[in-house]
Amino acid sequence: MTSDPHPPMRSFGRIKSRPIKPRQAALMDSLLPQIRCPAEAFDPRRLKPDAEAVWLEIGFGGGEHMAAQAARTPGTLILGAEPFQNGVASALRHLDEQGLQNVRLHDGDVRDLMARLPDACLDRVFILFPDPWPKARHNKRRLVQAELIADLARLMKPGARLRFATDWADYADWTLERFAASPHFAWDAERADDWRKPPADHITTRYEEKGLGDCAPVFLDFVRR
C-alpha cells in the first residue's frame, strides 16, 4: 500500500510530553492491544454485539470524560481516539481502575479511524475542548473543517447528536459557521443557557477546569438531520 501523497493537515501538536509512569506504561503494553480498534475496516457493533448504541469521542484527552460516560452507560460501546500518548496512558489507567469493558481505543489521528467505519454507525459524537489553534495563521489546523463534518455526516445516524465544547470564543464561532454551512446538521439551541450552561450529562475534566481559553466554556449540540 502506498502512502497518501497529500495527507490531511495534522490538527494536533506533540504526541508525547513527560515520561509515562511505569504502571501506565505497563498498561500500554498489556491492556491497549486488547482494546485497540482494528487496523482494518470494521463494524463497531461486532466488537460488542449487545451494544445498545455506539458513541465516538474525538480527542479524549486524559480519558476522564470517556471513562465516566462509559461507567454511566454500560450498554453503550464507546470508541475513543487520541493521538497524545500520555493521554492514552492516562485513559488506560481510568479504564483499568474502573474495570470498564465497553471502550475501544484508537491511539492516533481520528480521521484514520473514521475512514475504517461504515456508514450510519454512530449514535453520538463528542468533540470536547480540541486544540484551538488560536493564531489566525494556524486556524487551518483546527480539527473542525468542512471535510471532517462531511465525514461525520456519513458516519452518524439520522437523529444522532454531536456535542462540541470549547473555551475559545473564536473557535465557537468558527464551528457554528461550518456546521451551519452543512445541510446535514441542525443546531437546536433555543436560548442562551443552551450553550452557556453545561448540559445535564456533561462531565467536567481537569483540562476544562484549568480555564486556558479566553471565554467561559461554550457547549454546542448539533443533530444529524
Rank of each mutant, 00 (worst) to 15 (best):
F12P: 05
L56N: 13
T73F: 15
N102W: 04
F60L: 12
R137S: 09
A68G: 12
A186L: 04
P38E: 12
Q24D: 10
N102C: 05
K135Q: 15
L95S: 09
V125N: 06
A53Q: 08
P183T: 03
D167C: 01
A160T: 05
K135N: 15
D201E: 13
A153Y: 09
P134F: 14
W168Y: 09
L92D: 07
A120I: 00
P74G: 10
M156W: 10
L148T: 07
G63S: 14
E97W: 07
G211N: 09
E57S: 14
E209T: 06
A67T: 13
P130W: 03
P8K: 11
V54N: 12
E64P: 09
V54A: 11
R224C: 12
G75A: 13
Q145W: 10
D194E: 04
S182F: 05
P198C: 04
E97C: 06
I149L: 11
A115G: 00
S3T: 12
Q34P: 04
E82D: 06
D173M: 02
D201K: 01
K48L: 15
A70M: 15
A192C: 00
F222V: 06
D170K: 06
D29I: 00
R124V: 03
V218H: 09
P8N: 13
L100N: 06
A172V: 05
R163G: 05
A71K: 13
S182R: 01
D29P: 01
D123R: 00
D4Q: 14
A181C: 02
P217T: 01
V103M: 09
T175L: 00
H65S: 14
D123L: 06
D109E: 01
A181I: 02
L79E: 01
F185I: 04
F219E: 04
V144N: 08
R141V: 04
W174Y: 02
K140D: 12
A165D: 03
E209V: 03
R10C: 11
K197Q: 13
F129A: 03
A41Y: 03
A216Y: 05
A150N: 08
A71M: 15
A53G: 05
R72C: 15
G61T: 03
Q69L: 15
D131A: 12
K48H: 13
Q101T: 08
I78Q: 08
G211H: 07
C37W: 08
R72D: 15
L162N: 07
P83S: 08
G99A: 11
L143M: 13
F185D: 04
A41R: 14
D214S: 03
L212H: 04
D194K: 01
